[in-house]
């Protein structure tokens, strides 16, 4: 069975590798500059993700949200671990958190808001913001912080962002909305959605954490 499995995967990989040889050298690219500026962007990837294929992105954000719903729902019946935080609490770390928190926030927002001009965008910015905040929160004791944060606000930010994104996507697809404002707005909404989402996932995992 095991040998057969490796043989099958190897054959499959070989077949795929062979199939790519027919694709090189790659044909020249169709012109893309005009379409990019037409969407109000300088970064063509942002023009595709947030402009031409905003519908896909919308579905992708839905996939992400559903995973979050699943994380919350499936962990609900399990007991939570109380006690020692994964990172040792120390005054130095706490001071570092105070200094770094605003910096990470500004960096995340900048990365998202400038996503249509250069590399960046809502998703990586949200991931960085969410996980950075959580790493720093670990220094302060995550349970305490999670209790302080108003849960309704978080979920309103998360699902409100989602709903606004759906409206934006629908408008772009049916009414032909386009322009830089659309991209910036979409990126910021994704940032809101993904950063709260990343926070929620990590916080839930940390509350039920295992041995590390």
């Amino acid at each position: 069975m095991r040998r057969g499995a490796w043989l099958a995967t190897l054959t499959l990989g070989g077949l795929i590798g062979w199939a790519t040889t027919g694709l090189f050298p790659r044909p020249p690219l169709p012109p893309w500059e005009a379409v990019t500026s037409q969407w109000g962007a300088r970064n063509a990837v942002a023009a595709v993700v947030l402009g031409a294929r905003l519908y896909d992105t919308l579905l992708e954000v839905l996939v992400f949200s559903m995973a979050l719903v699943g994380v919350r729902w499936a962990l609900r019946p399990l007991p939570q671990t109380e006690g020692r935080p994964p990172v040792a609490e120390s005054p130095l770390l706490e001071r570092a958190a105070d200094v770094l928190l605003p910096a990470i926030g500004v960096f995340g927002v900048y990365l998202a808001a400038s996503g249509h001009l250069g590399p960046g965008g809502g998703f990586p910015a949200g991931a960085i913001l969410g996980s950075g905040l959580l790493l720093l929160a670990l220094a302060r004791g995550i349970r305490a912080l999670a209790r302080e944060l108003p849960q309704p606000l978080l979920s309103r930010l998360e699902y409100g962002g989602l709903a606004a994104l759906i409206v934006l996507g629908g408008g772009s697809l049916t009414l032909g909305w386009r322009g830089a404002w659309l991209l910036v707005l979409a990126n910021l909404l994704i940032l809101a959605k993904v950063s709260t989402g990343a926070w929620v996932v990590l916080e839930h995992f940390a509350a039920h954490r295992g041995e590390v």
């Binding site: 992708e60 699943g70 994380v71 499936a74 399990l78 995992f205």
Partner: peptide, 20 residues
């Protein structure tokens, strides 16, 4: 970009199920 996020989402869900 889309695929990476989708894979993260499925991974997070499956890990939660593994924990369960």
């Amino acid at each position: 970009l889309t695929a990476i996020v989708i894979h993260f989402a499925t991974l997070a869900l499956s890990l939660v199920y593994v924990i369960f």
